[in-house]
Simulated scan of single mutants.
Amino acid sequence: MYLSYYGLKIKPFQLKPDPNFFFSSKGHKRAMAYLEYGLSQEDGFIIVTGEIGAGKTTLMRHLFQKLEREKFIAVQLVNTHLDSEDILRMVAAAFGLAHLNSTKATLLLELEQFFRQSDREGKRVLLLVDEAQNLSPSALEELRMLSNFQTDDKLLLQTFLLGQPEFRKILLGNSMQQLRQRVIATYHLGPLDTDETKSYIEHRLTTAGWSGDPFLRDDAFNAIYNFTKGIPRRINTLCDRLLIMGCLEELHTLSSVEVNEVIRDIQQEFDLSILSDDESDEFKPATA
Protein backbone atom coordinates (compact mmCIF):
# COMPACT_ATOMS: atom_id res chain seq x y z
CA MET A 1 0.00 0.00 0.00
CA TYR A 2 2.60 2.54 1.05
CA LEU A 3 5.57 1.29 -0.98
CA SER A 4 4.89 3.32 -4.10
CA TYR A 5 3.70 6.34 -2.11
CA TYR A 6 7.00 6.59 -0.22
CA GLY A 7 9.18 5.22 -3.03
CA LEU A 8 10.21 2.07 -1.18
CA LYS A 9 11.37 -1.06 -2.98
CA ILE A 10 10.30 -3.60 -0.34
CA LYS A 11 8.45 -3.61 2.96
CA PRO A 12 10.87 -2.30 5.60
CA PHE A 13 9.03 -3.67 8.62
CA GLN A 14 7.97 -7.19 7.69
CA LEU A 15 7.63 -9.53 10.64
CA LYS A 16 9.36 -12.61 9.20
CA PRO A 17 13.06 -12.86 10.12
CA ASP A 18 15.15 -11.64 7.19
CA PRO A 19 18.98 -11.65 7.48
CA ASN A 20 19.15 -8.94 4.81
CA PHE A 21 17.70 -6.53 7.39
CA PHE A 22 20.13 -7.57 10.13
CA PHE A 23 20.90 -4.61 12.41
CA SER A 24 24.14 -4.75 14.35
CA SER A 25 23.29 -3.22 17.72
CA LYS A 26 25.74 -3.45 20.62
CA GLY A 27 23.92 -6.51 21.88
CA HIS A 28 23.71 -8.13 18.46
CA LYS A 29 27.44 -7.53 17.90
CA ARG A 30 28.29 -9.25 21.18
CA ALA A 31 25.91 -12.09 20.45
CA MET A 32 27.43 -12.55 16.99
CA ALA A 33 30.92 -12.63 18.48
CA TYR A 34 29.85 -15.41 20.88
CA LEU A 35 28.19 -17.33 18.06
CA GLU A 36 31.21 -17.06 15.79
CA TYR A 37 33.48 -18.16 18.63
CA GLY A 38 31.24 -21.13 19.38
CA LEU A 39 31.07 -22.04 15.70
CA SER A 40 34.85 -21.92 15.42
CA GLN A 41 35.17 -24.45 18.25
CA GLU A 42 33.21 -27.09 16.27
CA ASP A 43 31.91 -28.42 19.56
CA GLY A 44 28.91 -28.67 21.87
CA PHE A 45 25.86 -26.45 22.28
CA ILE A 46 25.51 -22.72 21.72
CA ILE A 47 22.59 -21.00 23.46
CA VAL A 48 20.97 -17.63 22.73
CA THR A 49 18.06 -16.36 24.81
CA GLY A 50 15.98 -13.21 24.55
CA GLU A 51 12.47 -11.81 24.78
CA ILE A 52 9.87 -12.64 22.14
CA GLY A 53 10.77 -10.64 19.05
CA ALA A 54 14.26 -9.65 20.24
CA GLY A 55 15.84 -10.82 16.98
CA LYS A 56 17.26 -14.23 17.91
CA THR A 57 16.19 -15.99 14.71
CA THR A 58 17.31 -13.10 12.50
CA LEU A 59 20.68 -13.19 14.27
CA MET A 60 21.10 -16.90 13.56
CA ARG A 61 20.01 -16.59 9.94
CA HIS A 62 22.52 -13.78 9.50
CA LEU A 63 25.23 -16.09 10.84
CA PHE A 64 24.14 -18.96 8.59
CA GLN A 65 24.02 -16.63 5.59
CA LYS A 66 27.74 -15.98 6.07
CA LEU A 67 28.65 -19.67 6.00
CA GLU A 68 30.22 -21.32 2.98
CA ARG A 69 27.37 -23.50 1.75
CA GLU A 70 29.61 -26.18 0.36
CA LYS A 71 31.13 -26.70 3.82
CA PHE A 72 28.02 -26.71 6.01
CA ILE A 73 24.65 -28.42 6.26
CA ALA A 74 22.39 -26.30 8.47
CA VAL A 75 18.73 -26.93 9.29
CA GLN A 76 16.19 -25.34 11.64
CA LEU A 77 13.45 -26.77 13.87
CA VAL A 78 10.63 -24.39 14.78
CA ASN A 79 7.97 -26.76 16.17
CA THR A 80 9.24 -27.75 19.58
CA HIS A 81 6.24 -29.01 21.61
CA LEU A 82 7.68 -32.50 21.21
CA ASP A 83 8.52 -35.58 23.23
CA SER A 84 11.78 -37.50 22.94
CA GLU A 85 10.95 -39.67 19.91
CA ASP A 86 9.17 -36.86 18.10
CA ILE A 87 12.24 -34.63 18.38
CA LEU A 88 14.34 -37.35 16.73
CA ARG A 89 11.80 -37.68 13.92
CA MET A 90 11.78 -33.92 13.40
CA VAL A 91 15.59 -33.81 13.28
CA ALA A 92 15.68 -36.69 10.78
CA ALA A 93 12.99 -35.01 8.65
CA ALA A 94 14.87 -31.70 8.71
CA PHE A 95 17.92 -33.45 7.26
CA GLY A 96 15.80 -35.18 4.63
CA LEU A 97 16.05 -38.66 6.14
CA ALA A 98 13.40 -41.37 6.35
CA HIS A 99 11.48 -41.00 9.60
CA LEU A 100 7.88 -42.18 9.26
CA ASN A 101 7.11 -45.28 11.33
CA SER A 102 10.79 -45.58 12.27
CA THR A 103 11.78 -46.90 15.67
CA LYS A 104 14.05 -44.84 17.91
CA ALA A 105 16.95 -47.19 17.18
CA THR A 106 16.42 -46.82 13.43
CA LEU A 107 16.26 -43.04 13.69
CA LEU A 108 19.51 -42.91 15.63
CA LEU A 109 21.25 -45.19 13.13
CA GLU A 110 20.02 -43.09 10.19
CA LEU A 111 21.20 -39.90 11.85
CA GLU A 112 24.60 -41.32 12.78
CA GLN A 113 25.18 -42.56 9.24
CA PHE A 114 24.17 -39.19 7.85
CA PHE A 115 26.51 -37.31 10.21
CA ARG A 116 29.43 -39.59 9.38
CA GLN A 117 28.81 -39.38 5.64
CA SER A 118 28.68 -35.59 5.87
CA ASP A 119 31.97 -35.58 7.75
CA ARG A 120 33.60 -37.77 5.08
CA GLU A 121 32.43 -35.23 2.51
CA GLY A 122 34.07 -32.43 4.48
CA LYS A 123 30.80 -30.88 5.63
CA ARG A 124 29.88 -29.75 9.13
CA VAL A 125 26.34 -30.40 10.34
CA LEU A 126 24.51 -27.67 12.28
CA LEU A 127 21.12 -27.91 13.96
CA LEU A 128 19.20 -24.78 14.98
CA VAL A 129 16.33 -25.34 17.44
CA ASP A 130 14.00 -22.37 17.93
CA GLU A 131 11.66 -21.90 20.92
CA ALA A 132 13.82 -24.27 22.96
CA GLN A 133 11.93 -23.39 26.16
CA ASN A 134 9.08 -25.55 24.86
CA LEU A 135 11.18 -28.71 24.69
CA SER A 136 10.49 -31.37 27.30
CA PRO A 137 13.42 -32.53 29.49
CA SER A 138 13.40 -35.85 27.61
CA ALA A 139 13.58 -34.05 24.25
CA LEU A 140 16.53 -31.96 25.46
CA GLU A 141 18.21 -35.14 26.64
CA GLU A 142 17.80 -36.69 23.17
CA LEU A 143 19.45 -33.63 21.63
CA ARG A 144 22.29 -33.98 24.12
CA MET A 145 22.68 -37.64 23.21
CA LEU A 146 22.99 -36.72 19.53
CA SER A 147 26.11 -34.76 20.48
CA ASN A 148 27.71 -38.08 21.48
CA PHE A 149 28.19 -38.95 17.80
CA GLN A 150 31.84 -38.13 17.12
CA THR A 151 35.05 -39.12 15.43
CA ASP A 152 38.33 -39.51 17.29
CA ASP A 153 38.89 -35.75 17.33
CA LYS A 154 35.56 -33.91 16.90
CA LEU A 155 31.80 -33.97 17.33
CA LEU A 156 29.68 -34.66 14.25
CA LEU A 157 26.81 -32.33 15.19
CA GLN A 158 26.77 -28.83 16.63
CA THR A 159 23.47 -27.54 18.04
CA PHE A 160 22.19 -23.99 18.54
CA LEU A 161 19.34 -23.56 21.03
CA LEU A 162 17.29 -20.35 20.85
CA GLY A 163 14.82 -19.66 23.64
CA GLN A 164 12.91 -17.13 25.65
CA PRO A 165 14.33 -15.96 29.02
CA GLU A 166 12.69 -18.81 30.93
CA PHE A 167 14.93 -21.26 29.07
CA ARG A 168 17.82 -20.06 31.22
CA LYS A 169 15.91 -21.21 34.33
CA ILE A 170 15.22 -24.57 32.69
CA LEU A 171 18.93 -25.06 32.08
CA LEU A 172 19.64 -24.53 35.78
CA GLY A 173 17.51 -27.55 36.72
CA ASN A 174 19.20 -30.57 38.29
CA SER A 175 18.31 -32.75 35.30
CA MET A 176 20.15 -30.38 32.94
CA GLN A 177 23.63 -30.78 34.44
CA GLN A 178 24.95 -32.97 31.64
CA LEU A 179 23.58 -30.61 28.98
CA ARG A 180 25.12 -27.59 30.74
CA GLN A 181 28.50 -29.30 30.56
CA ARG A 182 28.20 -29.39 26.76
CA VAL A 183 27.44 -25.66 26.43
CA ILE A 184 30.44 -23.76 25.07
CA ALA A 185 28.87 -20.33 24.48
CA THR A 186 25.74 -18.57 25.71
CA TYR A 187 24.34 -15.06 25.36
CA HIS A 188 21.16 -13.22 26.39
CA LEU A 189 19.96 -10.78 23.73
CA GLY A 190 18.40 -7.72 25.35
CA PRO A 191 16.26 -4.92 23.84
CA LEU A 192 17.57 -1.94 21.90
CA ASP A 193 18.14 1.33 23.72
CA THR A 194 16.65 4.67 22.64
CA ASP A 195 19.41 5.61 20.20
CA GLU A 196 19.57 2.09 18.78
CA THR A 197 15.83 2.10 18.22
CA LYS A 198 16.16 5.20 16.04
CA SER A 199 19.13 3.72 14.17
CA TYR A 200 17.27 0.41 13.75
CA ILE A 201 14.26 2.11 12.16
CA GLU A 202 16.44 4.21 9.84
CA HIS A 203 18.49 1.13 8.92
CA ARG A 204 15.42 -0.85 7.90
CA LEU A 205 13.98 2.07 5.97
CA THR A 206 17.28 2.66 4.16
CA THR A 207 17.59 -1.05 3.31
CA ALA A 208 14.12 -0.83 1.77
CA GLY A 209 15.10 2.13 -0.44
CA TRP A 210 14.13 5.07 1.79
CA SER A 211 15.34 8.51 0.68
CA GLY A 212 13.98 10.55 3.57
CA ASP A 213 10.27 10.36 2.78
CA PRO A 214 8.55 10.18 5.17
CA PHE A 215 10.59 12.30 7.56
CA LEU A 216 10.36 11.07 11.15
CA ARG A 217 10.75 13.67 13.87
CA ASP A 218 12.76 12.89 16.99
CA ASP A 219 9.63 12.83 19.13
CA ALA A 220 8.25 10.11 16.84
CA PHE A 221 11.29 7.91 17.55
CA ASN A 222 10.92 8.55 21.30
CA ALA A 223 7.23 7.60 21.21
CA ILE A 224 8.04 4.42 19.28
CA TYR A 225 10.69 3.44 21.83
CA ASN A 226 8.45 4.15 24.82
CA PHE A 227 5.72 1.91 23.43
CA THR A 228 7.84 -0.95 22.10
CA LYS A 229 10.49 -1.09 24.88
CA GLY A 230 13.11 -1.52 22.16
CA ILE A 231 11.93 -4.99 21.07
CA PRO A 232 12.51 -5.24 17.28
CA ARG A 233 9.34 -7.19 16.44
CA ARG A 234 7.18 -4.68 18.31
CA ILE A 235 8.98 -1.85 16.53
CA ASN A 236 8.26 -3.51 13.18
CA THR A 237 4.57 -3.94 13.97
CA LEU A 238 4.13 -0.33 15.08
CA CYS A 239 6.18 1.20 12.25
CA ASP A 240 4.35 -0.80 9.59
CA ARG A 241 1.06 0.52 10.91
CA LEU A 242 2.52 4.02 11.10
CA LEU A 243 3.49 3.98 7.41
CA ILE A 244 0.06 2.70 6.43
CA MET A 245 -1.55 5.58 8.30
CA GLY A 246 0.91 8.09 6.82
CA CYS A 247 0.05 6.89 3.33
CA LEU A 248 -3.70 7.02 3.94
CA GLU A 249 -3.46 10.51 5.41
CA GLU A 250 -0.98 11.62 2.70
CA LEU A 251 1.64 12.64 5.26
CA HIS A 252 5.32 13.19 4.54
CA THR A 253 6.31 14.11 8.10
CA LEU A 254 5.50 11.82 11.03
CA SER A 255 5.63 12.92 14.66
CA SER A 256 4.64 11.57 18.06
CA VAL A 257 1.11 12.72 17.31
CA GLU A 258 0.77 10.16 14.52
CA VAL A 259 2.63 7.49 16.50
CA ASN A 260 0.31 7.90 19.48
CA GLU A 261 -2.71 7.78 17.20
CA VAL A 262 -1.56 4.42 15.83
CA ILE A 263 -0.89 3.20 19.37
CA ARG A 264 -4.45 4.11 20.38
CA ASP A 265 -5.76 2.22 17.37
CA ILE A 266 -3.77 -0.86 18.35
CA GLN A 267 -4.98 -0.67 21.95
CA GLN A 268 -8.59 -0.33 20.84
CA GLU A 269 -8.27 -3.41 18.62
CA PHE A 270 -7.22 -5.58 21.55
CA ASP A 271 -9.14 -5.93 24.78
CA LEU A 272 -6.12 -6.20 27.05
CA SER A 273 -8.29 -7.33 29.95
CA ILE A 274 -8.84 -10.75 28.32
CA LEU A 275 -5.25 -11.36 27.22
CA SER A 276 -2.66 -13.25 29.20
CA ASP A 277 0.22 -11.27 30.68
CA ASP A 278 2.61 -12.45 27.94
CA GLU A 279 0.18 -11.51 25.19
CA SER A 280 -0.78 -8.15 26.62
CA ASP A 281 2.89 -7.26 27.08
CA GLU A 282 3.14 -7.14 23.28
CA PHE A 283 0.79 -4.14 23.24
CA LYS A 284 1.28 -2.31 26.54
CA PRO A 285 3.10 1.02 26.24
CA ALA A 286 6.33 1.20 28.19
CA THR A 287 6.85 3.84 30.82
CA ALA A 288 9.04 6.69 29.61
Rank of each mutant, 00 (worst) to 15 (best):
G7F: 12
F13R: 00
P17Q: 06
S24A: 15
R30V: 11
A31L: 07
Y37E: 05
Q41W: 05
E42M: 08
D43F: 08
I47D: 00
V48Q: 08
K56F: 00
R61M: 13
L63P: 02
K71S: 14
Q76Y: 11
H81P: 03
L82E: 00
L82F: 00
E85D: 13
A94C: 04
G96E: 10
N101M: 06
S102R: 11
T103D: 04
T106D: 12
T106Q: 14
T106Y: 03
L107A: 07
E112S: 13
F114T: 04
F115Q: 03
R116W: 05
Q117L: 12
S118W: 07
L126R: 02
L128Y: 11
E131N: 04
A132T: 09
Q133V: 00
Q133A: 03
L135R: 07
L140E: 01
R144V: 00
S147P: 03
F149S: 14
Q150H: 02
D152W: 03
L156I: 05
L162K: 03
L172T: 13
M176T: 07
M176C: 09
Q178D: 07
R180D: 05
G190S: 15
T206C: 07
G209S: 09
G212S: 06
D218G: 06
D219W: 04
T228W: 02
I235Q: 01
C247V: 08
E249C: 08
L251K: 15
L251H: 10
S255G: 08
V257Y: 08
V259A: 06
